[in-house]
């Protein structure tokens, strides 16, 4: 059965989730990337969107506006989450955001933040931007449009947005860190086996 999170997300909704679990999101999803993080954390400006119990998406979408001024989501793929590592722990603390979605893993500070303030980081599959756009029912608002299309905070109403693979859980476990260890442990014996067969210089 599909596990669906609905905004506003409560701590209890997240406590049972483990890294590797797959969830979907219904409710409000706000795009938030480099500059929005920087404005809140470095410049101390307050965000134009309430994020308590909310979900953010590290993404720079392509949005179309029709003659009536209505926005349409064309394409919304995740961008590399690691770029936000510097800010994310403080961001979680300041905003009370519960679900951070992006591409690839995040580092130890975000994991600390997730454990301390009960939040999770999840991965949406990279390169699946059109699929993601089809899960956006409506764009409800657009804040900080002065930042240009990719950096604007797009407020989306989404339905069963996913799959979202939990990469950091509320215990602070980090899926990508564990995978890295696993790949490195396997690597030695594999390369030795190959090297034994490529001694072409004699």
């Amino acid at each position: 059965m599909k596990k669906i999170l609905t905004t506003p997300i409560k701590d209890e909704d997240l406590l049972d989730l483990n890294i590797g679990d797959i969830v979907y999101l219904t409710g409000r999803l706000v795009t938030c990337r480099d500059v929005a993080h920087r404005r809140l954390i470095e410049q101390g400006r307050s965000l134009p969107v309430e994020l308590k119990g909310g979900a953010i998406f590290h993404a720079g979408p392509i949005v179309r506006q029709d003659e009536n001024g209505e926005f349409e989501m064309v394409s919304i793929g995740p961008t590399t989450s690691m770029r936000m590592e510097k800010f994310e722990k403080a961001f979680i603390k300041e905003t009370g955001v519960k679900l951070v979605i992006g591409k690839g893993g995040m580092g130890p500070e975000t994991a600390e933040g997730c454990a301390e303030y009960k939040a999770v980081h999840a991965v949406f599959p990279g390169g699946c931007a059109v699929l993601a756009a089809t899960k956006v029912e409506e764009i409800e608002g657009a804040e900080w449009q002065d930042l240009g299309m990719p950096e604007t905070m797009w407020i989306n109403r989404v339905k069963e947005f996913g799959p979202l693979i939990i990469s950091i859980d509320t215990k602070g476990n980090n899926l990508f860190e564990e995978n890295k260890k696993r790949f490195n442990a396997r690597r030695g014996p594999i390369t030795e086996k190959i090297k034994a067969q490529v001694g072409f210089i004699s």
């Binding site: 590797g20 797959i22 720079g60 979408p61 392509i62 064309v74 394409s75 919304i76 793929g77 599959p125 990279g126 390169g127 699946c128 931007a129 059109v130 699929l131 756009a133 089809t134 799959p163 693979i165």
Partner: peptide, 25 residues
Amino acid sequence: MANVIYDSMAENQDAADKLNRPSCQ
């Protein structure tokens, strides 16, 4: 988990085809 991701990729390509949009942004 990997299967779910492969399914998403396939769904994405179908959607790109149907909606005539670039498949990755």
